[in-house]
Amino acid sequence: MKKNSRFTIVILCFYKLKKTFLICLNFTSCLHLDNILTMKKLLCFLFFASYYTNAQSLFMLKTSQVTFFAGTPIEDIDAKNTKSTSFINLKTGDIMVSIPNKDFVFKRGLMQEHFNENYMESEKYPKSTFKGTIQNIDSLNLQSGEPQKIAVKGILNMHGVEQNQLINAVISAQKNGLFVESSFFVKLEDFKIDRPKIVWEKLAEKVEVKLKFEYVPYQK
């Protein structure tokens, strides 16, 4: 949300209002509105609200990068995914993320096979989702241009298990949208992903997940 774009909206409002104001003069009696100002205010609010909701509070994911590190000092097990889908509603603070599990790319093809076949069971559980709300949405001041810390509380659904998670992230306004960055840990045991002891690849107990999401305003 930038100052100049907000300014444009106000100008647009006035332009529209000028027209409606003139028409309204004729129809106030029909609508049983004694006060023209009430009508004017209402229209102004509705218009602005619709514009606000439409263009500025709903953001969709443009480019994304989800990486995780599940290795140990002995063996690096990491993967990257650029096929996520996500939306942020800045008005309500709602965030929804969906990550297709099959699109995690590993350095070693065999690890990718094990990830899909043995750990994530991607045929059975094709995607991981997160649905949450930014807790401090009201105190967010994106106009300042400074990156803002956010705490997102929600439900992470992975491997068929739903878990409450509080994820800390940093959000900042960009030239044409939003940039969200986060890093958090997921405990495999919580999601019923078993780590067999005889396996040569040693899996970490906690997996570090990193996100880099670039959002743009959503237009239909």
Partner: peptide, 11 residues
Amino acid sequence: NLDSLVASLEP
């Protein structure tokens, strides 16, 4: 609904 929005845009 954000859910349906996400669902509509998933690859």
